[in-house]
Design a protein around this nucleic acid. Structure first.
Lengths: 227, 227
DNA sequence: AAGTGTGAAAAGTTTCACAGCG
DNA sequence: CGCTGTGAAACTTTTCACACTT
């Protein structure tokens, strides 16, 4: 039996309007999260040269129920063949496009301290198709000393770099007391999505998406369930 | 290595039964997440010698609506004074107890590679009252070389250590291909909560809680919202 | 026969609105 | 008066069940 797959809480609206052929449909935000999980499972299937998969099998791999998987996919179109299942390759490509991942997405990381520089060494982002193209720190030398390979620039260069490189995504790892002011600068410079590791609720314009990863909070949450 | 995907039905309910004076009440899981956020805000208020706070003020700090805050707190008892607000100190203590954090909670970390050893250096956990008392790695020397200060033990000692030290929480940072088998060992040894950093849906007994922190997935999710 | 797509029902969560208390 | 506590309403998400297609 598998335990709960706990998704982070959403502090904003729960539905997402996506432009459709005709009008707009409402898609649960959680469905978009699950899309990423499905994508990963599909890639694994493709690696194993499976070319068709049923909702039951894929759902089991992703840790959801078959009906939910079918409903999630149906939000984005009709991909399955009745009696047969879903074509792994087509579905995989479609999800990739839906998630806006056709092209390698440039990302910057701000705050290359302990956690920040570890994230840079962590291979996970690159493996999933993101390229962290630069890091920013008030003390670039210190970050380089922590073994960061990519360019580490001083904070002053933040705005020009974002503009010149059309960066839309940022990973924010600065100490909590600077998080809001740095976030303001990022947004002003054109950043549209922030992966925030600071334990603070960031206030940003509504067209900016903030995803919080609060490590202590996750651990704390577990504390409730152990007895 | 890539066996068939086997995952039992996703039976996890979205509600949590907590033992009450008389019977049991159902509490939204998300409310428990928010409890941690409230707790943090309360600590900040306490640091600033505020002794009473209204739902409006606290809710704003936590990024939720006042009514939701009141409802969340009401799940656990009546703490407020009508016309006045909530007593910061009492509320803070109560939440702390509710989250099972009266005592310092021992935690182990398994897999002291890049990400794992960074998490160990990261001060966030300790600051929030968790103590990572030991790390485990197939190559303890390597982890020590990465500057890990706490004891790094070989994987063989996992079971005995967990039993002898009554450890209930584990942070799992091993490479994805080992995640499930290590999780099995953790659970068999008595671990009840796993903070899982591997991009995999872990299968565990229903009485074990798994909290997933999937960094690439969070970034991918952001990708959907930028245009 | 096998398996998708989907309306409808059920379950879960948030918000409202106001009674009631200090 | 101000603010909590809460039933009821509104809303969101999940699950069911089955028509329908290959």
């Amino acid at each position: 039996m598998n335990g709960p797959f706990v998704l982070p809480p959403f502090l904003t609206s729960k539905l997402v309007d996506i432009p459709d052929k005709i009008g707009k449909i409402d898609i649960p935000k959680k469905a978009i999260y699950r899309l990423s999980i499905y994508y990963r499972c599909l890639q694994k299937l493709r690696d194993n040269s499976v070319d068709t998969v049923s909702s039951t099998t894929l759902a089991r791999a992703a840790g959801v129920k078959p009906a939910q998987l079918r409903k999630d996919l149906a939000y984005f179109g009709q991909f399955g063949t009745r009696g047969l299942g879903y074509p792994v390759d087509i579905l995989s490509t479609t999800i990739r496009e839906t998630l806006g991942r056709e092209h390698l997405q440039p990302v910057i990381l701000v705050g290359a301290g302990n956690l920040g520089s570890a994230l840079l060494r962590y291979q996970g982002f690159g493996r999933e198709g993101f390229e962290v193209i630069a890091a920013f720190d008030s003390n670039p030398e210190g970050a380089r000393a922590r073994g960061v390979q990519i360019p580490v620039l001083p904070n002053e260069r933040l705005e020009t770099f974002i503009t010149e490189n059309f960066v839309k995504l940022a990973i924010l790892c600065v100490p909590v007391e600077f998080a809001q002011s740095v976030a303001n600068r990022l947004v002003a410079a054109g950043i549209q999505g922030i992966l925030n590791f600071s334990p603070i609720v960031l206030e940003v314009a509504t067209d900016v998406t903030v995803n919080n990863v609060d490590l202590a909070l996750e651990l704390e949450h577990l504390g409730y369930f152990i007895r």
